[in-house]
Amino acid sequence: METLYKITKFQIQNIIRSNWIIIYTFGLILTTSLIIYFTNDSSKVIVSLMTIMFILNPLIGILFGSIYLYNSREFIELVLTQPIKRSTLYSGLFLGLVIPFILVTIVGVGLPLAASNLIEPDLIGNLLSTSILLVCIFVSIAFLITTFIVERSAGLGIAFIIWLFLCWIYDGFLLFFSYAFQDYPIERIILALTIINPIDLARINILLRFEAAAMLGITGAVFQDFISASLGKVITFAVHLIWIFIPFSIGYFRFKKKDF
């Protein structure tokens, strides 16, 4: 436990020492404040922030995560020569990467939002927690990639493609699917397909919580029923957790057996 704490602490210090996470934080604070200042309309602010938190943040998470892990390959090898459990090292690395991101999100977006008093705290909490879950998902995917692919450029390419797939291509498939089968009662299938993708789930989860919900019409009402029900809440949270857990654990098993 102590070693886990030590590794995590070292990681965090190391990441904060590299300047660009601080630059990113200030960038977020600036963007969020500007959005709040110029739009000054709660629903528009939420929509703009959704793009930042659900699209940009995961991208940074997956790219920065992969780059960092590739860069700290020698450090990992060095630590492995010590009598430290691989599981401890792996979890330490993960926590050390995720915690700065959580802090960045809270400081970069949460603080300006809370200071502006434009959006009710309930919704801010929702936005932040969803965003944090998303970052965790993408960092864990970065772990999965880096444990499997040794070559740096290929790994980064795949990281980018995975991000692109989840936030863009998947929606295209969804649209194609709904066109192809629109004569059939496919509400539940669409519901399931949307929930599987963490970015879509996060987006809809937030959309349904503010007034844009009405614009989704009947299809939105199906979702509203599902998501606002307690079972739906559990499932929403569970899906995100599964998305964190599966890449993390696959990466972990690979890491355990990996011959450095």
Binding site: I55, C167, L175, Y179, I190, G220
Partner: peptide, 20 residues
């Protein structure tokens, strides 16, 4: 236009895909 012809597409409201 898309939503008029395909009701389910409304789920992509505010998505990155639609923006692009």
């Amino acid at each position: 236009i898309i939503v008029q012809s395909n009701n389910y597409a409304v789920l992509l409201f505010r998505s990155f895909f639609v923006d692009i």
